[in-house]
Amino acid sequence: MGTFISDNAPKFGQVLIAVFGFLAIMSAIFFIAGKANGKKSKPIANIVFLGPAVLLLGAGLIVPTFQTIMFSFKNDTSQKWVGLANYKWIFTDPDIHLVLFNTLLWILVVPVVTTGIGLGLAVLMDRMRNESIPKALIFMPMAISFVGASIIWRFVYNYSTRNQPQVGLLSAIVKLFGGQPQNWLLVKPLNTFLLMIIFVWVQTGFSMVILSAAIKAVPADIVEASALDGAYGWRLFRFITFPSVRSTFIVVLATQVVGALKLFDIVRTMTGGNFGTNVIANEMYAQVFVQFNQGKGSALAIALFMCVLPVLFYNMRNLRLERSHR
């Protein structure tokens, strides 16, 4: 224990310096700027309040975005302009076609499944009495990292060679029903779907919690009135519940699309992008940090950015509508 403390004291010292140093500087600026009076006090306040955020966003997101766009037109070390070569590579290389196809599969399948199961669970839970325990248990994977979730599911998908006992749940179940267990993560295209299950497992709780709140917000008298009019079960869901939560449903769906697009950790941990499971985000990482090709990596980042643009515009439109209703 003693060595543990002495080994790690410098690290925790850095935390204290960072946090308290930062807060001390902010307080000092506050104190000095607070003295300003009269006409200058408003612009000074704006600079002090907004300045740090604008600087950090500029250096961290805005300037880098333009740099990445530039890099995407340059070669692997960013020293020579290569025109559209990196984009041509994306559109012509058959290996990348598989990557693009997999990413498309992810954004088509995963958001629909997570949001669909989430909605189903939210509707069912609205009708049961003790929903808090199942809700917490299905929501729980949200707290687990994709890496942790990958390890959990790697164990489920575990395959032992022939004549050895199957200790993976999937193999054991398949064997129980008379099937032949396989090295699941190597089986194309099944492996991509096995990876998707992990994402669904983590994210369904998110969809469920948000949609559940939306369902609870449907006024009880509307539901009762339509029940009196004979709307039960599926009809009630179709004509009352779903239309009431539709806008929430779309927001959740869009969020899951963006999540599935940026997905990196699961593919990285489960297969490293091998065996036909690669996706854009993982290929981007591999191009930059394994192949050391900044040009191709940047072009892939731009491809990701292009894919989220429609969602970005949709969100902006929503925000503007929301504000004009106020």
Binding site: L57, P64, Q67, T68, Y285, G297, A301, F305, V308, M316
Partner: peptide, 20 residues
């Protein structure tokens, strides 16, 4: 500025990794 920051939420952080 608020709209702009709102829009930045969705920008993939892959866009920033190399320059940063």
């Amino acid at each position: 500025l608020f709209f702009f920051i709102f829009a930045l939420q969705i920008v993939p952080l892959q866009m920033s990794l190399i320059p940063l």
